[in-house]
Design a protein around this nucleic acid. Structure first.
Lengths: 223, 223
DNA sequence: CATCACATTATTTTCGAAAGATTAGTGCGT
DNA sequence: ACGCACTAATCTTTCGAAAATAATGTGATG
């Protein structure tokens, strides 16, 4: 694997997820070259990787475009994530050991400690990091690397949509409290080793952002 | 997307799956260039794609290698496939319509018609094609593109292992009959819309090749 | 005999230019 | 005014050479 690509790939990915580019927008090599400071070779490799993650589309002799977004795709991806994560939490409860339980508890604790008094941006970043860490810890118990990789791939695909939801949630006292309650309920079912209840709660938990994202999406002029 | 890559990528992938290269083998650019008749640019893109599919590994400044194979990975991938396909058949039964049922029945019918009298290689290819078509038809009812893509990715990862099993099974009267019986049982539960039974059978069905593959794997000198 | 420094070779990675394809623009004929 | 062929400009894709890095071999030293 390359050197220059290691630089360009994460930057390009980040820019696409953050919405720097409009979905469907053409990605001109000349522009990318100056923006990311490297030649076409490394760029093509980075773009190839992003095609694999469904964040970019490419047509022979017609270049690359930022993958489009749609409500249909939003529904499909979140449905997939909810079903998969629901499966994973069931497996984790069936397979996880005491260490796993302890790790979940630990992540739940740190997430609960994120302080609302901090600077907004900093808090958003910290809450999101710890939130993801909690969910990672929960499903880690399944001990199935390939399924965890599939989960990560779906998460990446969802990130652009998720981005529309994150701000809205973290900056709302109400939404944050709701999430807190959902996490607590999940944690209870996990510690009780109730696989059926946990997978049900997990599915619902993952689906709650969808209506919010759908609204934000309909506001966009590029849909 | 490129032109030359469209040539090189599937060939390289096919060669890796067919076991032309030894797992762990270094992929020299100079060799690849002459074998696939193109420059390093297209090759690097093809290899990047294959890294995304976990068929190749790459380290900065140290080139590319065919991904290694191991019994641990065999177990992990087949476990993942079994759990995912089991989930998908449940969803398909919950969501599939009459057309879906009909399509499954049709694929089961054509698979049953594969004739043993044909030429061996031709029969193997035909059986495998129709076998995959049956499984594709079964899970298609879930109507969840992202999960079907995850399934396809896991299938690709499994292909090298699956390759070790396929010959053994198709050329054994006994094994083929066993598979036939399993498919019939699956079909019955599907037409009866018994999601619980179907997902159980599906998990078992996907796991049956594992012991056979494990044996073949242990015979290899490169494990 | 082992080990380290140094020089040599082999390999990867990158860039720039040329070739190939597509898109945009122009003018002609109807 | 509209469509079509042709030309010009733009963009993508590829290759070959050069630069950067790693691997190998050699010889001196403890």
């Amino acid at each position: 694997m390359p050197n220059q690509v290691i630089d360009a790939y994460p930057k390009l990915k980040r820019d696409i997820i953050r919405g720097i580019y409009v979905p469907g927008e053409k990605l001109l090599m000349s522009q990318l070259k100056s923006r990311y400071g490297c030649g076409v070779g490394p760029l093509r490799e980075a773009l190839t990787r992003l095609i694999g993650e469904h964040l970019v589309t490419g047509i022979s002799q017609r270049g690359y475009r930022v993958a489009s977004m749609s409500i249909a795709e939003l529904d499909a991806i979140y449905d997939a994530r909810a079903e998969l994560e629901s499966l994973l939490i069931r497996l984790a409860i069936e397979r996880g050991d005491d260490e796993w339980e302890a790790a979940v508890l630990a992540r739940a604790h740190t997430l609960g400690k994120v302080d609302r008094v901090q600077d907004g941006e900093e808090m958003l970043e910290r809450w999101d990091t710890r939130h993801q860490a909690l969910h990672d810890a929960m499903v880690a118990g399944c001990h199935c690397q390939p399924l965890l990789q599939s989960r990560a791939a779906l998460f990446d695909q969802a990130q652009r949509y998720r981005h529309l939801w994150l701000r809205q949630t973290v900056f709302s006292e109400q939404a944050l409290a709701d999430k807190q309650r959902e996490h607590q309920a999940l944690l209870d079912t996990i510690l009780a080793r109730d696989a059926r209840a946990a997978s049900q709660l997990m599915r619902e938990h993952l689906m709650t952002p969808v209506p919010i994202i759908r609204e934000r999406l309909q506001e966009q002029d590029w849909i």
